[in-house]
Design a protein around this nucleic acid. Structure first.
Lengths: 403, 403
DNA sequence: GGTTTTACTTTAGACACTAAATTAAATTCC
DNA sequence: GGAATTTAATTTAGTGTCTAAAGTAAAACC
């Protein structure tokens, strides 16, 4: 037994209202009630509590004119300054630190370039602590509280244990930073996979919110995937589910960054594409194991313009991705598969062979059950998702003890 | 808005008590309270309602002596005769019809042999209606009510739409029987995949109940799989998730019963094993496309006794299964993968190559996160699972309107 | 300026739950 | 054998949450 049952009901309803406000923006009490199946009287009661706690604010009436007859609605919105969260995105050779306010918007953002793969755990820990401290101090000076921190990491992480199991950005394995940071900054620290963050943000966008079972595949330096079941990210027993990039296309096939062979990533990721291409084509110089945006752009353009060698490389990549997606359709049967990440730039070049592979692999009924779409890629999506997840995680903590 | 909120709480608590009684057998009020985090007073109140509705009964005190001091516990158990459900298992060339009582036990069972693949939809519908009618009439004569019917079907089904999308037992596709049967017998009719039924039963057995994320793989004529996430069967958007047997091992590989190539089933199922074997080994005569138990037994024994040709066949099957399981581990990251079905008889012959494939495919961290085990196979498991699922589904209906 | 419309608040009552007190039914102790 | 002890179940009293309905507020309409 944790809480008396009635308190749970109240808390659930309170959290539901906060979530409605976060996704819908300013909303009137009547509408909040209708959206959540709660009577108007109860909304009044709950919002009164929240106003007292300064988690929400009423909008002045003159800010909005809502036409019709009758008493005008009083719009309520989240108090942006009620709390803030920090999201740290860790990817290959880049760290991004972002501050989000209580309504989920980015208030501050900074990028750092460093050779992540050569860091020791202690060096990375120091780096994170220093950088977060700077932001943390700034925020504390101007705001009430930093209510949570999120580490959004490329690779296999265990949110439950707070350990990074394996990341392409790092030269070591099984490292734990979350607990230490939680001690230092005295707030909850979430560890999340970057693909889950992105899926979280995409899923709440109106055009995708009607698909409760959503698979998001991220193409880029590596291949990431996130599965949302009933709108919630699916984590396996250790929280490290959905390692799509390392599911197998061809047993014994091409060498992957994970050390195994035949992974989809070993055919479809940036580094795999560039590895195939560099020996056969004239391409910009640079670190071919970590091709830059420009390098990939050049390669993609060649394929899209019909260069036969480049086309063949993308054909092969599309075929691997197609068979991989076929397995995902067979196993998860989602409503929608959304392909995004910086690698979508090459999607059109992969598409014919991808679709051929799908038809080759699956009976029509299974293909037809799921839609396939792409979605443009924006750099800040990961952090926005991390902020959203962190806010949701810390909200119950903010509700404690109205005095 | 459906029900006032407090009614939902009450209904949830009532259903929780019923579920406790179903899994734990006769239980005292105090213990029911402790198990469900409900106060003893509330248990008294709820059980009073249930007694009035005759869904539960009190055991006479002299039936059990529970030693200790103090007032003896009054054990409560489900009223077995409160309702019954019918489960129809449809597999290749066999239909089984079973009656389960309210406590989930089998009260009656009948098997029918018929060439299912040559039936038209109308013929099958007639057959089912006739056979169910017989049982239904018998039950109605002696009991209160037949509260639900379950169709447990091998293959891809859509529980939501009530249609059989594809079944190896049938010569046609996209057939709907559930609605018609529901009309005829005036009760809810569930359509379930057979693997989901079995997983349901296994999951509630004490030795597996501590694994919330459980994957059950069924080896047999075909390959079935069920995924339980947080103890609940995972169905995709159409409810036809987890078509593990038709996920791909080898693009362009062996021909599968589904018409595509390279499916795991095309290497590891009974028919695939026998297809490979029949040209090279002296095996019992019979329909080699649908090998009998005896035929498979002979083949398995050969492999286990070290016959090189048979061993090679099982090696290949194990390798395909191993890569398939590797993908499942990568994508679902379950706590436990349980292998069962009649085909477990050959598991030991597949095991070495299966484990080799796993190690070849996955980084150690992902293999180590999940356990792998086998579980003996019993014929009635499917129907027991179907009964359990049906009882759970109809329970809310039984609670309506205390007069 | 009165009427109508819509939004929000207050009031009154119902329901489910729990803690504490009470009753029930056994065992143990003397 | 009767009193004390122990444990189970029930009853009682009280709390919290919710809703429907009545009441109040603030606008547009006529």
């Amino acid at each position: 037994m944790t809480l008396p049952l009635n308190d749970i009901t109240r808390r659930d309803n309170t959290l539901a209202l906060l979530r409605s406000l976060r996704t819908h923006g300013p909303t009137a009490r009547v509408d909040l009630g209708a959206m959540n199946g709660i009577s108007s009287a109860t909304v009044t009661s709950i919002t009164a509590d929240l106003l007292k706690q300064e988690l929400i604010v009423e909008l002045p009436h003159d800010a909005h004119r809502n036409g019709g007859r009758g008493r005008p609605k009083t719009l309520i919105e989240l108090n942006r300054d009620a709390a803030c969260v920090i999201c740290v995105k860790l990817s290959i050779n880049e760290v991004q630190i972002v501050v989000g306010d209580f309504s989920g918007h980015i208030r501050h953002s900074a990028h750092f370039t460093l050779t992540t793969q050569s860091l020791t755990p202690a060096q990375l820990s120091d780096f994170l602590e220093t950088r977060i401290s700077e932001v943390h101090a700034t925020m504390k000076a101007s705001w009430q509280r930093v209510a949570g921190i999120c580490l959004a990491v490329q690779g296999v992480v265990s949110p439950v244990n707070g350990t990074i199991i394996w990341s392409p950005a790092l030269g070591f394995r099984n490292a734990s930073f979350a607990d230490h940071l939680a001690d230092v900054f005295n707030c909850p620290v979430l560890l999340e996979n970057d693909a889950n963050c992105i899926a979280r943000i995409l899923a709440e966008q109106p055009e995708y919110s009607s698909y409760p079972n959503l698979v998001v595949i991220m193409l880029g330096y590596g291949i990431g995937m996130s599965v949302l079941i009933d709108g919630k990210p699916f984590l396996g027993s250790q929280g490290s589910a959905a390692e799509f990039g390392h599911s197998k296309y061809e047993p014994g096939g091409a060498l992957c960054a994970c050390g195994r062979r035949g992974c989809i990533e070993a055919y479809t990721s940036d580094y795999a594409l560039y590895r195939e291409a560099r020996s056969m084509l004239a391409l910009p110089a640079g670190d071919s194991a970590h091709p830059s945006h420009d390098q990939m752009q050049t390669l993609t353009q060649l394929a899209l313009q019909g260069d036969p060698v480049a086309r063949q490389i993308y054909d092969k990549a599309g075929r691997a991705l197609g068979f991989g997606i076929a397995n995902v359709l067979a196993l998860f049967n989602p409503d929608l598969v959304l392909i995004t990440g910086s690698g979508v730039r090459g999607y059109d070049a992969m598409r014919p062979s991808l679709e051929r592979a799908l038809r080759e692999a699956l009976v029509d009924e299974l293909i037809g059950a799921s839609q396939l779409a792409t979605c443009p890629w924006e750099r800040d999506m990961t952090c926005l998702g991390g902020i959203a997840m962190t806010l949701q995680a810390i909200e119950p903590d903010l509700l404690v003890t109205p005095p």
